[in-house]
Design a protein around this nucleic acid. Sequence first.
DNA 1: GGAAAAAACTAATAAGTGTTAGTTTTGCAG
DNA 2: CTGCAAAACTAACACTTATTAGTTTTTTCC
Lengths: 196, 196
Amino acid sequence: MAKIQTGKNSSKKEVIIEKAASLFKSKSYNASSMRELADMVGVEAPSLYNHIGSKSELLQAICFKIGNAFTEQVEKIKSSKISTPEKIEAVIRFHIEIMAENFDEVYVANHEWKHLKEPYLADFLSIRRNYEKSLISFIETGIERKEIKPVNPYVAVLTILSAVRGLEFWQRNKKNVSLQVLENDMVNHLLNGIVK
Amino acid sequence: MAKIQTGKNSSKKEVIIEKAASLFKSKSYNASSMRELADMVGVEAPSLYNHIGSKSELLQAICFKIGNAFTEQVEKIKSSKISTPEKIEAVIRFHIEIMAENFDEVYVANHEWKHLKEPYLADFLSIRRNYEKSLISFIETGIERKEIKPVNPYVAVLTILSAVRGLEFWQRNKKNVSLQVLENDMVNHLLNGIVK
DNA sequence: GGAAAAAACTAATAAGTGTTAGTTTTGCAG
DNA sequence: CTGCAAAACTAACACTTATTAGTTTTTTCC
């Protein structure tokens, strides 16, 4: 009856999910076969089903792990008593850090959520929309308090979220640009611009 | 021997490519079947092959149409004698406009290029890298001329390109935010920041 | 060591894939 | 009207897909 762990603190199911994230990232969800995934795990395809329910369950696990991490973090920032620019800075830095630590899973959540099945698809979109709304209200509050220029809050959030999402391209250039420079420059760019 | 056009100025092949862009956008390349595409065109699947060579040829046509449009535009901007911030502004506005006019194709080029076959994949990546390089050299020149703050040029380009790429999310909110507001606010945000 | 559970295996299935072959229909040129 | 090419059709192929059934091996626990 007792769940058996494989050595360390990660169950075999968790190993499968990690490998799936890596596979889905490099080949996309639909082009990834359970046979390939099984190969990566070191097992035949049907054996995977002793640990997981289905292929789409893997995508769900990945997307919601990331979605929940973002939601949790934004709630923390929401309840902290710092200025609006500082809140936005905290959001940007969190995006950069989670991207650096969980690249595969963030990438898959960003790119492959479309293949979630209902009702998970609707749930995921709802999580994402709430996240956006939280950020929009940060900006709105900042404008009221005259900490932020009177911009369209939706466009500002769109700009910021899209910019940090693009960090996925940075992976290629890790050598040329350090995480420190990246974080500081992007925060500065998105808050203060680049024109002298 | 002569190619026959279907009525207007668009051949049947062009119609197929347009429909393919729409289909690939909403379902992704791999999840789109030739039978579905045929349905959208109003024909049986094998009939498509009277006009096109293969499924992947459709993806190629879409990706290179967009890739070449961007390359062409950046060359124009490169040779125009305007200040660096104005060049960057022109780039951003071009992205927004081409996204507004050719949404499906831009979306597919951005999301599905991974499924191009060699040598097209390598060619596409090369086009994209050259585009990035052009923008980086804009920023470098701007820093030399003291028009731009001394930032890391790669990070600045990454931020700008990612931000404009995110315009795909704006499609949902067309009603709430006009193209004018979007363009002006995003240009301002990426050049001058949002902090007062 | 022996029982029981977990997890591996092989074999198979039903559905869907892009594409080809071969044939019939359509539509224009003379 | 006739002939011919373009483009539609049906049927089929060879392959891949996720997943299930049934069985055997491995591991765990006493």
